[in-house]
Amino acid sequence: MKKTIFSIARALPCLFFGIDLIKKPKRCVPPSYGNLSLSCFQLDGQTTRNVAKLANREINLERLLRKKIIRLTTVLFFFSTTLFAQAKATSRQLAINDKVPNLTLSQILNFNQKSAEFSSFRNKALVLDFWATYCSPCIAEFPKMDAMQKKYGKNIQFLLMNTYASDTVEVLEKFLAAQKAKIKDFALPIILNSAEIKNVFPVNTMPHYIWIGADGRIKAITRADQLTEENVSRLIAGLSLNLKTKKD
């Protein structure tokens, strides 16, 4: 290795001054440098082989780098395609029989988690109750839902979906405290304003209920008068719900 480095070092001056090593392997004197003499040696066989190895190594590294770039580009392409598909799925209004995407519930009150995803309720039926603190008919249904939540809690989850902009965290915390004073062990989680929820479940009038089966598909969209224990039992059992669809 030392011999190789030494040979290359001895040859560099000639390469620098543009002297042909093959034609003048022993000695070269650039005309403009007078008596300055630089010894030039033709690269021996071992040095040539070492240089060739280095060149091949660079070529192999370049090929490897190209492969890695192609792989990375492919991964990024599929990743961006997946993100686009998810964004598209969560940007359209859902209807009966649609599969609900794995939406994020970023702020939750009165629950064992501060945030969750729909997948957290996998294999459970869901009833989404869209409401606001100004909606008296909505609030009037809370005791009934709370009782059914406590009775069928292993198989269903009622979620109070509040998408009203004026109902801030402070407002809802005060409201929750008042409900707990009225209803012992009030068990209904409150979901705060969520852009994702608004995109897929736009609501114009309340009360507004979305019934979701354990298979993750929307079974019905109704008003408060359809919220009965019989219908809830059918939802849990996976039976068909012949309920009148609410039209906003």
Rank of each mutant, 00 (worst) to 15 (best):
K144Q: 12
L61W: 09
T81Q: 15
Q42K: 07
F79D: 00
T73N: 13
T82A: 15
L36A: 12
K174S: 13
R63F: 07
S91N: 14
S37D: 12
T163Q: 13
P189V: 00
I190F: 05
T222P: 11
K88W: 08
D248N: 14
I156H: 02
R217F: 02
E58L: 13
I19G: 11
L126E: 11
I191A: 01
I197H: 03
N199Y: 07
Q86W: 07
K99P: 01
Q113F: 06
Q149N: 02
T205P: 10
K184L: 02
N123V: 03
K244T: 14
Y152G: 06
F79G: 11
F79A: 15
E117R: 15
K174E: 10
F186S: 00
A177L: 03
E173F: 00
D167F: 05
D167K: 11
R92I: 00
N56T: 09
I70H: 09
K24T: 15
K174A: 13
K124G: 03
K219M: 13
E170N: 12
A237I: 08
M1V: 09
S120L: 08
T163M: 15
M148Y: 13
E229C: 07
N35S: 13
K23D: 07
F17M: 03
V29E: 06
F111H: 14
R217N: 10
N155M: 06
S194K: 07
A87M: 04
V169S: 04
A55F: 00
M145G: 02
D20E: 01
K67E: 14
I221S: 04
A187N: 04
N112I: 01
N110I: 09
V200I: 14
A89N: 13
R57E: 03
L188C: 03
N123W: 03
A116R: 07
F17V: 14
V169Q: 09
F142P: 11
N97I: 08
P31Y: 04
K68S: 01
S115C: 10
R92K: 14
A214M: 10
W131Q: 08
L109E: 12
I108Q: 07
D98Y: 01
E62H: 07
V200D: 12
S39F: 10
E170H: 03
A89Q: 13
T228I: 03
Q46Y: 12
E229Q: 13
M145S: 01
V203L: 05
S106I: 01
I183L: 11
I108N: 09
K150V: 01
L188R: 06
L76N: 14
K174Q: 14
A140V: 11
F17Q: 10
G153D: 09
A237V: 02
S80H: 02
R57F: 03
K174D: 08
C135G: 10
K53N: 10
N162K: 12
T82F: 15
N112V: 00
K151D: 06
T133M: 00
K144R: 12
F111C: 05
P143N: 01
L235R: 00
N35T: 05
R122E: 14
T222N: 02
T47G: 01
F84P: 05
F121S: 05
T133G: 10
S37C: 09
Q46A: 15
A125C: 02
